[in-house]
């Protein structure tokens, strides 16, 4: 697995057609190599849009995004996990991985699925998998391109907390073992506290960074009490 690269986001302006106020104006955010940054903020503030801009899906904006010093098009393909699993229903689990990376051999694809706890389901169609399994395949697919940058768009949304915790444990393992730079969008401060090295809060219109929290405690040492305290810090309920 390739190790992470720094990401530099400079958005002079991002505006959606027909909207008076820009979504972003003079927004700057830097991620160090292999850093895990969680973006939090209210719905509609532009967290997912920012992620899509880094991924190269949203291109209509002024400014510059650099991944490892290169434009998103020139940089290595990022891993992207959408809010929904977005699996190709006509492809098997393995097929979904090789669809985005044809150079991935079958052994590697099967190993990635096994790493996600999907041993024995490699040839299953998405329709034959549970919702949680489909999300695991989506995560494996993001890793199938051996990403230097991993972009996660609310990967734990619309699922029950038990499944979310299982997936979070999986993502934590992935972060530790794959070493990519990670930008994760979430609306759950606890998820951010569990996964991130730094939590960035976006607010307002145009959206600005209103708070940043660094979390230096190793992920494996973040217990329930720590997460509760950190969540309070992030949500501003306790004095920083």
């Amino acid at each position: 697995m390739a190790s992470g690269v720094p990401v530099s986001i400079r958005v002079a302006e991002k505006r959606f057609a027909g909207q008076a106020e820009p979504l972003f104006a003079d927004l700057a955010l830097d991620l160090a190599a292999s850093e895990v940054v969680a973006l939090i903020g209210p719905s509609g503030v532009g967290k997912s849009t920012l992620l899509r801009m880094v991924a190269g899906i949203e291109r209509a904006f002024s400014g510059r995004i650099e991944i490892g010093g290169q434009s998103p098009d020139a940089a290595a393909v990022p891993g992207f996990v959408f809010q929904d699993p977005r699996l190709l229903p006509w492809q098997s689990a393995v097929g979904n991985l090789t669809a985005v990376n044809p150079s991935l051999d079958l052994g590697e694809a099967r190993a990635l699925l096994a790493e996600m706890g999907l041993k024995g389901y490699e040839d299953a169609l998405p329709g034959e998998l549970s919702g949680g399994m489909q999300r695991r395949v989506a995560l494996a697919r993001a890793l199938a391109v051996k990403p230097q940058v991993l972009l996660l768009d609310e990967p734990f949304v619309s699922i029950d907390r038990k499944l979310a915790r299982e997936l979070m444990a999986l993502v934590t393992r992935v972060i530790a073992s794959h070493g990519a730079t990670v930008l994760i969008v979430t609306h759950e401060p606890e998820d951010a506290a569990r996964l991130a090295d730094r939590v960035v809060r976006l607010e307002g219109r145009p959206a600005t960074i209103t708070a940043e929290h660094r979390i230096s405690t190793p992920r494996e040492e973040r217990d329930v009490a720590f997460l509760r305290a950190e969540t309070d810090r992030i949500t501003g309920e306790a004095e920083i």
């Binding site: 991924a55 190269g56 899906i57 393909v77 959408f82 977005r86 190709l88 669809a99 985005v100």
Partner: peptide, 24 residues
């Protein structure tokens, strides 16, 4: 359109995109 975005993010070449994402 979601599959289009997926192919775009992973930079799937045109003919491969047609074969694996569009034709099915």
């Amino acid at each position: 359109q979601g599959y289009g975005e997926l192919a775009q993010v992973y930079r799937v070449p045109f003919w491969r995109r047609m074969r694996l994402f569009v034709l099915p």
